[in-house]
Amino acid sequence: MLTPLLNYIKERSVTALSKEDIDLLSEAFIAKKLRKRQFFLQEGEICKYIGFIVKGATRQYTVDAKGSEHILNLGIENWWVSDRESYHKRTPSIYNIDAWEETELLLLPKINDFYERVNSIPAFKEMRTKLDDNNHMAIQKRLLSSKNHIAEYRYKELQKTYPEFLARFPQHIIASYLGITKETLSRIRNQSPRG
């Protein structure tokens, strides 16, 4: 099950993984399967893992006082899932993360200094730096879009950037992720030319 992670690292790093690096990754990461709607993390818990999605789909969300879900992140194969603040600061999470489909993960625990040891692997560190930069840029773009662009623009950007989300998640989750109502999303989809 480690092969997808090794390929992911190799694709995002010019530094080769040594046999010792692969042995450490094999020792550090734990395989985990989640059933649909099973929690990876619940609000109030301390996040104990950073997860790499091998197969399946996840969503990260909050629930407001009225019981409405607000989607912060969606994840599919070759994406990472976690509440990094809770993981690093050891504080209770304000998020829920669950599996939207049957999901297989590789989990990196905080125990036994695995995080620090894995981050000392040059190829992993290089991959993580690129990932952090890309994630920061994506968050800025999404925040700007939510503040400055109409719903139609946000939907078209999602279609271009993450078309697989539209195939994997239902309309109410996509609407929440875009920060619009289900009705607005339905109207936009009905007006969009089918391709």
Score class of each variant (00 low, 15 high):
98 D>A: 11
63 V>H: 01
64 D>K: 05
65 A>R: 12
67 G>V: 01
72 L>I: 15
76 I>R: 04
83 D>R: 01
100 W>C: 09
62 T>E: 05
67 G>S: 06
80 W>E: 05
100 W>Q: 07
63 V>R: 06
95 Y>Q: 00
77 E>G: 10
78 N>G: 01
72 L>V: 15
65 A>F: 11
80 W>L: 14
62 T>L: 14
65 A>D: 14
85 E>Y: 10
97 I>H: 04
73 N>G: 01
63 V>Q: 07
69 E>F: 02
88 H>P: 00
95 Y>D: 01
89 K>E: 12
79 W>M: 13
82 S>P: 01
63 V>M: 12
92 P>T: 10
73 N>P: 00
65 A>E: 15
97 I>L: 09
65 A>I: 13
79 W>R: 00
98 D>V: 10
93 S>L: 15
63 V>C: 11
67 G>M: 01
68 S>H: 08
60 Q>A: 15
88 H>W: 14
60 Q>G: 12
83 D>Y: 05
84 R>L: 15
86 S>P: 02
62 T>G: 07
96 N>C: 10
79 W>L: 03
75 G>D: 08
59 R>S: 14
59 R>P: 04
87 Y>T: 04
90 R>I: 10
69 E>K: 02
61 Y>N: 12
96 N>S: 11
64 D>E: 06
101 E>G: 02
69 E>W: 03
67 G>I: 03
89 K>D: 04
78 N>L: 05
81 V>A: 06
61 Y>S: 09
62 T>W: 02
90 R>W: 01
96 N>D: 12
86 S>W: 04
80 W>V: 13
76 I>T: 14
82 S>V: 09
91 T>R: 03
92 P>L: 09
97 I>N: 02
77 E>A: 13
90 R>C: 04
80 W>T: 11
70 H>L: 10
77 E>M: 11
74 L>F: 11
86 S>F: 07
90 R>V: 06
78 N>V: 05
72 L>Y: 07
85 E>K: 07
68 S>F: 08
88 H>I: 14
63 V>F: 04
95 Y>A: 03
96 N>A: 10
78 N>H: 07
81 V>G: 03
66 K>Y: 12
62 T>V: 12
81 V>Y: 02
77 E>L: 08
75 G>Y: 07
91 T>V: 14
70 H>T: 08
79 W>T: 08
70 H>E: 05
68 S>L: 11
73 N>R: 08
98 D>H: 04
80 W>S: 06
86 S>M: 08
76 I>L: 15
95 Y>G: 02
59 R>M: 15
96 N>I: 07
87 Y>A: 00
101 E>F: 09
88 H>N: 13
91 T>L: 13
101 E>I: 06
71 I>T: 15
93 S>K: 04
95 Y>F: 15
97 I>Y: 03
98 D>T: 12
101 E>Q: 13
82 S>Q: 05
